[in-house]
Every structure is written in C-alpha cells, then in structure tokens.
Amino acid sequence: MGSELMQQIVNGLAAGAIYALIAVGYNLVFGLLELINFSHGHVYMVGTFVVLSLMDTGIPFPVAILGGLVIGAGLGMAVERFAYRPLRGANRIIPTVSAVAATLVLENAANIIWGPAARRFDTPLPKGSIEVLGVTLTTMHGIVFGTAAVLAFGLWLLVEKTPWGRSVRAIRDDLPTAQLMGIAVNRIVSSVYALGSILGVLAGVLFAAYYSTVYVGMGFTGTLNAFTAAVIGGIGSIKGSFIGGLTLGVVQALAAGFLSSGYMNAITFVILILFLIARPRGVVGRAEVSRA
C-alpha cells in the first residue's frame, strides 16, 4: 500500500511537471496582457503533431522536435498578430471571442490534417527502469523531471536576469508607460507568444512521449489542465505554474488510482471550482490580478 501510494505520487509528479510546462507558457502570456490565451493548448497539440509527422518522414527525433518548436512558435505569433493584436484595448469580450475562434481554426485544421483518431507516438528515447524502495522509476520519469527543472531554471534566468525579461516585466506592470520608455511592445509581446508556444510544444512532446500517444483532443484537455494549474498556483505567476502543475498532477493521479480514471475531467474541474471560490488568486498569486 505504501509503495503503491508512492508510485501514484511519482506518476502524478511526472504528469504534473508536464502540466506545469503547459501552464507556464500560458501564464507568461496571461501575465503580460491579461488576455486569456485560449489557443495555447491547441498550439501545443499542433506542434506535437508536427513533430510526429516529421518523424514519419524519417527525420531524426531531435531535428523533428526543432521543426515542431519552430512551427509552434510561428503559430503562437500568428495567432497573436492576427487574432489578438488588432483587438487590444477593445471590450474584453471581443478578444476572448476571437481567441476562441482562433482555437476553432486550429482544431479544425488539425482534424483535417491528422484526423480525429489518436496516433501512436514512438520516440527513440531510451526505455528502462530501476526500482527504488518498491517504486518503479522509468527513464521517462527522469527525462520529464530533468527537462522541467532545466526549463524552469532557464525561464527564471530569462525573465529575472536579462534585458528582455526586464522589458517583459515592464510591460506586465504598465503597458503604456513601457511603450513611452521606448520598449518595442509589439516585438516583445510577439516574442513572449513565441516563447510560450515553444514551452507548450516541448510539454506536448514530453506528454506524447510519456503516454506514447497524440490526439487532437489533447488541445482542450491541455488548456483545461494548464488553466487549473495556473489557478491553483496563481494566475500570471511562473513559480505558481510549477506549484499548481505538480499539485494538480498528484491529485489527479491519486484520484485516478484510488477512485476511477473515467472521472478524471470531473475531478480536475471540481478542484478548479474549489480554488476559484476559495483562493481565486492561487497559492502565490500576484496581489493585483485584474486591472479591468
């Protein structure tokens, strides 16, 4: 029983690390413009499918990932440029509607190109496992934890210690003033969307490799999980994304292991509602969430 519990927690942490990576890409954008990036989950799904298609043509795995990242970043920037930017400053419902519309375009395109059925995702990543105190640790666990830790640290460096990060924080705090100070707002926003999408696609590849599958529906579940992770941790906070993602992963794994895996979405949703009511700003949320 004890080791079974530990096993569920380890599995949950791995799933949670992936959620955290989706959530952090989502949170970066939300923190910047306070605009819900509804298409984030879909960019992550399309990018992962691109990696699969590239591998199908015989391109080696690392190059295929690179291709997926480039396409993902391009998509993120395109969505920002065409669906969000022209509507900056409009009544909030307008960009929200167009964000949803952009998602529909991506979902439809993915359904036409790759079809609605789930596809197998095989990677040349080494498969192996060791047993520690009755808990099975696979190579995939190691890869997921390692990637998430490296990306988390890299992201922290990027946002806190570089001139680019300073611009991002300036825009987040006050967009018009940042613009007056000579920050190229549009270029920075564009680059944040690209970065968020890159993190999303990386999370997507990890997800696909971890579960050995890709499917169009993972766009929505990705959005829902990322959003829940963001709400648990605190909307707009990078640290919060990781706390929220890991928490969500563990709770889901425990619920699936000891209750029923068929009600996974329901469990996620109930957690989301509880947090929205009890702690709408999350565990480490920034004090001022809405300037509207």
Partner: peptide
C-alpha cells in the same frame, strides 16, 4: 472574473 467563466463552463 470574465475569462474564467468559459473554462468553468467548458469543464
């Protein structure tokens, strides 16, 4: 707040 609503309802 507004943006959360559609995630809640989609959920």
């Amino acid at each position: 707040s507004g943006d959360y609503v559609f995630v809640v309802t989609l959920g």
